[in-house]
Design a protein around this nucleic acid. Structure first.
Lengths: 247, 247
DNA sequence: CCCTTTATGGTCGTACTGACCATGGTCAAG
DNA sequence: CTTGACCATGGTCAGTACGACCATAAAGGG
């Protein structure tokens, strides 16, 4: 039900809305942007310059503008923070909305959180307004600003779970990748080692997960036998799923 | 990032917030309340009495109050709509947030949608303010108000997916239930028939999914052999999952 | 030339699943 | 009372998937 009830006096009613009073909220987006770099899971963070939490790292984000959806706001903010222009193929997944009254000490802010996955990202050049944007390793992060620790933990959990039953892992990889790189995505996000032949068997047995680039091969940094290159296939779901090893 | 940027002139800045301008949004919750009644999946809907969409069915919901979270608002609204007082054990799951600018023609409304599951629910007595609240079968619903068709479809998809890898199905059942009733939940939500012995084997082989009530048995409406009664166990996840049959 | 490293291919036993068949208890109709 | 419908329960059997290996191939470094 939308704007149906009249319980909240004190809000400003927009034109034509004299029957309905409502409480205004600020609506923002927060972005948990993950990538696999240098063999580790990394997160895009910005350093806060103002109170509260001045000097702390925080997730990038910002206000939702009057004429855009939260998804559009998330893409806009991400483009501004990273300086990337082409985010069309980017996987952006809505995590959940955080609405606890005290989460921002200054005012009532409802924040729609998104998880985004980037392959081989550029170093952010602190694009527009953010004080400083950097990639930082996921492990060993100090406490973040606001409730961003929890948002980031939720993003990690969600991405880890989606790797099990979707073909999402290719979003972490460049357009052409080796099966070793794809396996490394799983191992990095899950924090567990996988058996290489078994992983290979599973991936190749799933129709549409990956398709081989004919004739191409790449050396994985010069060591070992050259690996065949693959592209992401058309499939979106993994059936049956690729479950995390149970410890 | 919270309330960090100054891009939106025209919003009212609360006290102490002169540095930050923001656009106020109305924030509501929408509830997709599902149950299994009379052998069919049913949804709790309210009939709208005012424009827009007067006379259409809509999901119950309402404004988030200034001092409550979206989860608290959802529980409060649900209690008001159904007249139920004890919703402590109720499974409430945040679906996602719908924020497209045109989804409410009157004003900018951002809605946090929840899916709720009720076992054997009472007939709602149109409790507080809602014009009329009723359980309606999920199949064959005419178009709902606003974007509630999509929210309901998302809720159905989410619940169906969660049945696969969680013990959520017991939330549809009364405190004590037969395995036939539990299987019926799966069949109703998924819309597929399941093999009874195989379902039974799978459920009993999962530790903590259900535990038998000693000595108790119930006739399933008088026909057939009496079935043993079970309670929900302590487990929350299903490992390995109980996958939908692939058609 | 040997060793390390990585990719790729295969085997084998176990666990799980889907498709059955069989039995037993209860009710209702004949 | 008998019979059949109906449902719960128990079991079999084969195909599949998966984990734990072993083996081979191709590259680079000492």
């Amino acid at each position: 039900m939308e704007a149906e009830e009249n319980r909240v006096p004190g809000g400003a009613a927009p034109e034509g809305y004299d029957r309905y009073a409502f409480e205004p909220f600020a609506v923002t987006v927060d972005l948990a942007v993950l990538t696999v770099r240098a063999g580790a899971l990394q997160v895009l963070l910005v350093e806060r310059g103002t109170e509260p939490y001045a000097g702390r790292w925080a997730l990038p984000g910002g206000f939702v503008l009057p004429r855009e959806s939260a998804e559009e706001a998330a893409r806009r903010e991400l483009a501004e923070e990273t300086g990337l222009s082409d985010l069309t193929g980017l996987h952006l997944e809505q995590l959940r909305t955080y609405s606890e009254p005290g989460r921002d000490p200054r005012m009532r802010v409802v924040s729609v959180a998104f998880a985004a996955l980037l392959p081989d990202p550029p170093e952010p050049h602190g694009g527009g307004d953010a004080a400083q944007a950097r990639w930082l390793p996921f492990d060993g992060l100090g406490p973040l600003a606001f409730d961003h620790d929890r948002i980031l933990a939720d993003a990690h959990e969600r991405v880890g779970a989606k790797l099990e039953y979707s073909c999402l892992a290719t979003s972490f990889c460049p357009p052409e990748f080796t099966l070793g790189e794809l396996q490394h995505v799983y191992e990095t996000v899950w924090g567990t080692a996988l058996d290489r032949p078994n992983f290979r068997r599973k991936v190749l047995a799933t129709p549409g997960f990956v398709e081989q680039v004919p004739g191409a091969a790449r050396l994985t940094g010069g060591r070992g036998k050259p690996a065949a290159l693959y592209r992401a296939g058309g499939a979106k779901v993994l059936h049956p799923p690729l479950l995390r090893p149970t410890p």
